[in-house]
Amino acid sequence: MKVSADHEKLVMLGQRRFNGFTPYQVVTFLNQILKERGVIFGLRQLGDDNELTIYDISDNAKEP
């Protein structure tokens, strides 16, 4: 079975190469790219774990 993606339909929003990155670098990059689309990411460290939260900051965001 051959699996392929039609990349012509994908719109690149941003790209960054990481070498020895931390989770905070990834979240900062995502926030820079996606803030204008109404999405913000939060990250907090809980002991040895990291908790990632995604927020909808668009004008039409609804409370869960």
Rank of each mutant, 00 (worst) to 15 (best):
I40V: 15
E36H: 10
N60C: 01
P64Q: 04
Q32H: 12
T28W: 11
S4M: 13
F18G: 08
L46H: 10
A5V: 14
N50Q: 07
L43K: 11
D59V: 11
A5K: 07
N31G: 09
G42S: 04
M1V: 06
A61F: 14
G14E: 00
N50S: 05
H7L: 14
G20P: 00
I57D: 12
I33H: 07
F41T: 02
D56K: 02
G14S: 00
R44Q: 14
L34N: 03
I54M: 11
A5S: 05
Y55G: 01
E63Q: 10
A5I: 14
L52K: 06
Q45A: 11
T28H: 13
D49T: 06
Q25N: 10
L30M: 13
M1P: 04
E63V: 08
T53W: 04
K62Y: 02
Q15F: 03
V26D: 04
L34P: 01
G14W: 00
N50D: 08
E51T: 08
P23C: 10
Y55T: 01
I54V: 15
L30T: 03
T22M: 10
S4Y: 14
F21E: 12
P64R: 06
Y55D: 02
T53M: 11
R37P: 00
N19C: 09
A5W: 05
P23V: 11
R44P: 00
P23R: 12
A61L: 05
K35V: 10
D6K: 11
Q25W: 05
M1H: 06
K2I: 12
K9Y: 01
I33S: 02
L34M: 12
S4Q: 13
V39T: 11
M1R: 03
P23D: 10
D56G: 03
G47T: 09
D59N: 11
T22C: 03
N31D: 13
R17T: 15
L13N: 01
P23F: 11
L30F: 12
E36D: 15
D6Q: 07
Q45T: 14
T28K: 15
Q32C: 06
M1A: 09
M1W: 01
G14Y: 02
E36S: 15
V3S: 08
D56T: 03
V3Q: 11
L46Q: 14
I57G: 07
L10G: 02
V27C: 04
E51D: 06
L52S: 02
G47Q: 10
Y55N: 03
V11L: 07
K62R: 09
N19W: 11
N50W: 15
T22I: 08
S4F: 15
V11A: 04
L43D: 05
H7W: 10
Q25V: 01
T53Y: 08
L43A: 08
T53G: 01
A5H: 05
K35S: 10
N19A: 14
